[in-house]
Design a protein around this nucleic acid. Structure first.
Lengths: 221, 221
DNA sequence: GATGACGAAATTGTTGACAATATCGCTGAT
DNA sequence: ATCAGCGATATTGTCAACAATTTCGTCATC
């Protein structure tokens, strides 16, 4: 008999993280323990452990006697997160160039081509999925697992922002161009060029976001 | 009346982190809840919350029914942590060049000069303290608080390794030279040069460590 | 003497009840 | 009508007892 054990604190933390990524929980919203218990089936103890984890990750803010709430990033914090991410993914691009297998490099190119074909399409979800695949492939092929986990943690608070940008056609076209430059550098075996191109690519995303921010303010309540 | 409350989970986590940094707790060592309760005065609940936090930070490893133990970094993990740190501190060096006040830049130079005078001295602790001050000043002056907190988290598992290197005179001399190059770039207002010099400086530390690792193996039990 | 089963001790996981605190609505006086 | 004070309710913090699991020592057997 498989007795259904309740979820572990790690699984509960993953669940909350997923809710935040899907925008079912928005910045500033309070996380009431009872609600999480009802929705995940976990015990109160495990829920509180999970919230401590998320607080350590910087994703939620736990205040004494006032509970947890989803942290909301200022534009300056977003800027720093993007710069950090650009630097880390740049390292991965260089390592990918030097260490990835031929098959992985071919797949990188294949995904980039799929994205090119997808630019005109109406579904940003598809594009976003391919984009995630592409970036993950680089970090995996580089063998930089520690850096990958850091990047994923950095990304969670700004995940929805990244997704927002994919609703704009111009951003899609720019991203595809950036990817082409990076793939070419990788294929040519030029690690330094791949690194700086990847870094520029991420910073381009930040610039695009900054311009959006000037017209529509994300950070407001 | 100030009733002395027990330490919070954050304070307990800080205590454990400090013990690990001071090498009173070494990699692989098991962290028994009872012992931490006795030494910190915290309740079991808070101790467990603290251990979850540290697990989320990647500093300890919590296994089901087997408790927490200090995580033991492989040389490959150390390599990635150094590369990540180099990239992040590089960003800070560039931002420092662009954004720091004249007073902060003068202080940066002053600390560098103190370190130069300290090279011949017998106390690596003094040098290590100045080094930490110098690196913190750059991150503070750059205004990159988010990046600073990431760097500090990355550093904890390798803190003792960084300290080890300061026992060797040749490393001290090399570090002082690197610092001079960085300070000069900052003073000249050349952000790009400051960034690449800072990055090279951190990677130099890694190289030194790698050479040490070939003769003396740190990672063994 | 080596090996495996068994059980006691140590350690961690879980639960529920209770205390402390904040939040919000209500009452009443001005 | 407005606001201060007060109390009820919701939520979080704490603790102690109990259950589950691992670990280690013991003893019998081959």
């Amino acid at each position: 008999m498989l007795e259904k054990k309740g979820p572990s604190s790690v699984e509960i933390a993953d669940w909350v993280r997923g809710q935040i990524r899907r925008r079912r929980l928005v910045p500033g919203q309070r996380l009431v323990e009872i609600d999480i218990i009802r929705q995940t089936g976990g015990s109160r103890f495990k829920v509180r452990e999970a919230l401590q984890r998320l607080d350590a990750e910087g994703l939620v803010d736990v205040e004494e006697f006032r509970g947890a709430s989803v942290r909301n990033a200022t534009m300056e914090e977003v800027r720093q997160l993007y710069h950090a991410r650009g630097a880390m993914e740049g390292i991965c691009a260089a390592d990918f160039t030097a260490r990835a297998s031929a098959a992985q490099k071919a797949e990188l190119n294949a995904i980039a081509e799929q994205m090119e074909a997808c630019v005109a399409g109406p579904a940003p979800e598809q594009f976003s999925r391919l984009n995630a695949q592409w970036h993950n492939l680089i970090m995996d092929g580089a063998g930089d697992h520690v850096i990958k986990s850091i990047v994923q943690r950095l990304n969670t608070p700004i995940h929805h922002l990244v997704f927002e940008t994919f609703y704009r056609g111009e951003r899609l076209r720019a991203a595809v161009q950036d990817h082409r430059v990076i793939v070419d550098a990788v294929m040519a075996g030029d690690a330094k060029a791949a690194e700086s191109a990847m870094r520029a690519h991420v910073i381009n995303g930040l610039d695009f976001l900054s311009r959006l921010d000037e017209s529509v303010h994300f950070g407001e309540d």
